[in-house]
Amino acid sequence: MIAIAVAEAVNAGKAWLDAAISAFHRCEGAFSLVIGTPDGLMGVRDPNGVRPLVIGILETEAPNTPTQYVLASETCALDIIGAEYLRDVEPGELVWITEAGLASFHWATQPQRKLCIFEMIYFARPDSIMHEESLYSYRMRIGKQLAIESPTDVDLVMGVPDSGIPAAIGFSQQSGIPYAEGLIKNRYVGRTFIQPTQSMRESGIRMKLNPLKDVLVGKRILIVDDSLVRGTTSRKIVKALREAGATEVHMRISSPPVTHPCFYGIDTDSQDQLIAATKSVEEIAQQINVDSLAYLSWEGMLLATQEDPNSFCSACFTGDYPIPVPEMVKRSKLMLEKQPASTSV
């Protein structure tokens, strides 16, 4: 672990910063980290900046207090304690926070921006700021893009709570089809995507989402979700909507098909468990029992960022890993042959 590597370098005679930087040069992969030492606080992002890390300032009225800094994975953690967002830690940057202030070191030889696009689509909170806007705004735009790419004639648009909701609102605004809530989430349990076992995922859904029968009965529904990784949750949601009286259930996914596992920090399981890696969109539509299914295009996803499309890692959709993945690590997730994916039926 990095802690051991840093400690080793310190014990070999280096000072904190030299020790940390030499340890980072030995690290492969994606990492964002925070290190506390008796002499100061360090914040670091890997040379590709795959995972986010932000800097905030916490104002104080206490006299003779040095500038108070906060580091966090997302800006929502600054908001909650009343800290002001200052800036992102840059890819390949180390910030060193002490009584004397904040010092910046660009330690990587070839830094580049490869922010995980899945952070923007799903993983980070919608109230977190990336590229100077909330992720809610980005997710609304990908919903609009989805409506442009894959329109359909239905009575109501709804989102899978909570992460599908911003895109569903965007879809509704773009298409003019009314938005409604048809599934109420028990917000006091965790999200299905991040529970540890398949069996827990299977059993978790009923605890979490309760359909609103009077909203759904007799209606043609279009439901938007942020991603479709394994398909098990979607199948249960569709079943619940039909049982509640929906006459048609169409699904739209506000990201492209996830065909490749993530090696940079998000658990998307091994490739054989990714439904889009082994099945066509038609087969997936059949399996989850929807009347139609369409994914957002890869181009549409990047276009909606309004940023340089090369500044994102989208390897889970393409298999183009910006940081080389060691063969044995790859094998741990059972890589299949690379294959192109279509995005709709």
Binding site: M1, A15, G29, I35, T37, G265
Partner: peptide, 16 residues
């Protein structure tokens, strides 16, 4: 370490 204790919190995939 010889300079005192460090505490590290990270999100990382694979490393040294």
């Amino acid at each position: 370490t010889r300079l005192g204790t460090l505490a590290l919190a990270h999100m990382v995939t694979w490393s040294t």
